[in-house]
Design a protein around this nucleic acid. Structure first.
Lengths: 210, 210
DNA sequence: GTCAAAACTGACGAAATGGTCAATTATGAT
DNA sequence: ATCATAATTGACCATTTCGTCAGTTTTGAC
């Protein structure tokens, strides 16, 4: 049967292709977090993946495309972490603590993705040609935070205030960890997170209560 | 008189050289904040400065040296902003508010320097060869924050706690503004800063009070 | 085993980038 | 006006990087 056989071929081939595609993405993620995205070379990636250079161009149009893919997946992963909890938090405070905790875990467990997302260029470059493609995941991420907070807030609250809250959460986490990483060693970071987190959560609640 | 004449020559020449050096630094700062440091080309810089490519190499050994110079000066400038106030703040809260305010003004008035300092690569790259040179200014910056806070703190307070406080201040500001920049327009950022700043100051004071 | 289709390779040319240096220009002392 | 010194220039070469493509290898249907 032509249909079955051709389908079988496709499946096997696709599996192989997917494996190498995965290898490429893993290698690229490593390289991007060791050097910066801009400093990384296509050959840096393919060498680390132990693949020929041409292979990368069979899976991605160019370096930009693999960057966009990785940023997209990293944000997706981060959003999954935000969504994952055993018991739905009861109060706003609990949800905020959960969000901060999820960020913290993400930065520890997925250090490479954290470093990728945090590269200033990706966050701040506003006038790039492809920036729309890169900005979109970050906005999706902010919206996810807003989505998880909104059930706990009065529907009459200013949407801008929620956006501020989301920015504050994201900014606090990313910024604090970045500076913590140059200023402290890892277990110092660990012991710093919990007390500051609680205090920060309390202030945010106060901010919303006014 | 040989002494006088040679000195005059040197002065005039030095002035000219300093002008072009300044032009180069200004151009480089612009380019670095438009593209990223890694993406920027030596010719990008010299073209923007309207100078020959060779001129840059007479003033700086290579691209790295001009980066280090600019980061150093930007941190110096930021530290100046932190030090500048009319009346010495009375309480810890006032000092914290001043520090956050100074950061905010810096990010508005010296956007290019802010963007340069905030490039993830510069903040997070830990395993670069030249990172010692680049890490040093950031540590100087953290130490300046600690220096300004310490008079308001008990001398018996854990130095690590002060370091955490400094990281939190730096991280919050940088992180919040970065996310604010993609999530909001400029005047929205403006109206967001004041209420969140107060809230943040309160949490920091609580953190220290325990 | 044979064959075709898909995936992979790495040598190659084109383009970009880094850094040099002989030639040019500006400066100022005489 | 002339000269020496310092600053500037941009053509030039070496190296790196990109992206391609003809050829090789792998896969699996027959």
């Amino acid at each position: 049967m032509i249909a079955r056989s051709s389908k079988t071929v496709q499946n096997r081939m696709q599996k192989r292709a997917k494996r190498t595609r995965k290898k490429l993405k893993k290698a690229a993620l490593d390289v991007f977090s060791e050097k910066s995205v801009d400093a990384a070379t296509v050959e840096d990636i393919t060498e680390k993946a132990d693949l020929g250079k041409g292979t990368l161009y069979q899976h991605f149009a160019d370096k930009e495309e693999i960057v966009v893919t990785l940023v997209d997946e990293a944000v997706e992963h981060l959003i999954e972490c935000l969504r994952a909890y055993d018991d739905p938090p009861e109060a706003l405070e609990d949800m905020l603590e959960h969000l901060l905790d999820a960020h913290y875990k993400f930065s520890i467990d997925s250090r490479e993705e954290f470093l990728l997302l945090f590269q200033g260029k990706l966050l701040l470059r506003l006038e790039s040609e492809t920036m729309d493609e890169l900005e979109e995941p970050y906005l999706r991420y902010l919206q996810q935070i807003e989505l998880q907070l909104s059930p706990y807030l009065s529907p009459r609250i200013d949407p801008l205030k929620i956006r501020r809250l989301a920015c504050a959460v994201a900014g606090f986490v990313f910024g604090f960890f970045s500076f913590a990483m140059i200023g402290m060693n890892e277990d110092e970071v660990d012991t710093s997170v919990k007390p500051l987190r609680r205090v920060f959560v309390q202030s945010l609640c106060t901010f919303l209560g006014r």
